[in-house]
C-alpha cells in the first residue's frame, strides 16, 4: 500500500474550456477530493490549444485543492502551457510530472539555430511596410522555434520602435530602417538603425502613471515605456552623428 502522501488521483483537463466541460471538470475534481489525498493529478495530455479558460480552470483547481490540503500536479503539460503559467507567475503553484515532448524536439531547435542564416531587413517606414517587415520578422522567429509569447513581445517591440521612427524621425520616402535579428542560445537581439534626429529611448522612464493619464485625457506617450518593459536590456548609441542604433535584448531560454 502506498504511503498516504503518495496517493494520487487524476482528472482530465478538457481540450476545450467550454462552460459544460468546466462543470464536468469541477464535478470530477470535487469527487476526487472526497477521498483523502495529498496530490491531485491533472492530466493535460489532451490539450492542443491553450486558452484563458484553461488557465482559469487550473487556477480554480489549485484553490479548491488548497482548501482541501491537497496539491495539484500537472501530468504531461506541454512546454507552451508551462511557459504561459510562468509568464503569469502561476508556475510555482503547481507540481509538474513528466512534461510532454516538444513536437519540434529540443535537439532540432538547436540544430535549426546553428544553421539559421543571419536576419537582416531594410524597410521604409510606411504603415504597410512596417506591417510587412513585422510579418517577415515573426516568420523568422517562428522558423527558429522561438516560443509564441516571446514572438508576441518581439512583434510588439518591433511595431512600437518602427512606429516611433515613422512618426518622429522625419525620414524621406527613400530612407529605410535597418533591422538585424540575432538568435543566440539564451537571448534574441534586435538592432534597429535609422538616420533620423538623435533619439535616446533609454532616457525615458518605464513609468506609466495610469492615474494621471485618464485625468489629463492623455492618449499617447507610453510606447517607449512599453518597449522598455517588454525588453530585458536596451542600449542606445548615436553613430557618426548621423545614425540612431537601438539594441534590444530579450532572454528566451537557457541552453540545456
Amino acid at each position: 500500500m502506498l504511503p498516504e502522501r503518495e496517493i494520487c488521483q487524476a482528472v482530465f483537463l478538457p481540450a476545450e474550456a467550454t462552460p459544460a466541460s468546466q462543470i464536468t471538470f469541477e464535478r470530477d475534481l470535487d469527487r476526487l477530493l472526497n477521498v483523502p489525498s495529498h496530490i491531485v493529478d491533472v492530466d493535460c495530455s489532451g490539450l492542443t490549444r491553450i486558452t484563458s479558460g484553461h488557465i482559469g480552470i487550473l487556477w480554480w483547481a489549485q484553490i479548491r485543492c488548497a482548501e482541501n490540503a491537497a496539491g495539484v500536479r500537472l501530468l504531461a503539460p506541454s512546454p507552451g502551457l508551462l511557459r504561459i503559467l510562468e509568464a503569469m507567475d502561476l508556475r510555482d503553484l503547481f507540481r509538474v510530472g513528466d512534461v510532454a515532448p516538444n513536437p519540434a524536439g529540443e535537439d532540432t531547435i538547436w540544430q535549426r539555430l546553428d544553421t539559421l542564416p543571419e536576419y537582416n531587413d531594410d524597410y521604409p517606414v510606411s504603415v504597410i511596410d512596417i506591417d510587412n517587415a513585422i510579418d517577415r520578422l515573426v516568420a523568422h522567429l517562428v522558423r527558429a522555434g522561438v516560443p509564441d509569447l516571446i514572438v508576441f513581445d518581439l512583434r510588439t517591440i518591433c511595431y512600437e520602435v518602427s512606429t516611433n521612427i515613422r512618426l518622429y524621425a522625419q525620414l524621406e520616402d527613400s530612407q529605410t530602417v535597418s533591422l538585424n535579428a540575432a538568435i543566440d542560445d539564451d537571448k534574441i537581439t534586435l538592432r534597429f538603425t535609422d538616420s533620423g534626429p538623435a533619439f535616446d529611448l533609454t532616457a525615458h522612464g518605464k513609468t506609466i502613471d495610469h492615474r494621471i493619464m485618464p485625468l489629463n485625457r492623455r492618449y499617447h506617450g507610453f510606447g517607449t515605456a512599453m518597449i522598455l518593459r517588454l525588453s530585458d536590456r536596451v542600449h542606445y548609441a548615436r553613430a557618426d552623428e548621423s545614425q540612431n542604433i537601438l539594441t534590444i535584448e530579450k532572454y528566451w531560454r537557457k541552453r540545456p
Partner: peptide, 30 residues
C-alpha cells in the same frame, strides 16, 4: 499597441467620472 491601450486609458477617467465604467472582456492571454 501602446496607442490602442492609450485610447482606452485616456477615456476611462471621463467615463468613470460620470458614474460609469469601461469593461474589457473576452481578453486573450497575450
Amino acid at each position: 499597441s501602446s496607442a490602442g491601450v492609450g485610447a482606452i486609458l485616456g477615456t476611462v477617467g471621463l467615463v468613470r467620472e460620470s458614474g460609469g465604467d469601461i469593461i474589457l472582456y473576452n481578453v486573450s492571454i497575450t
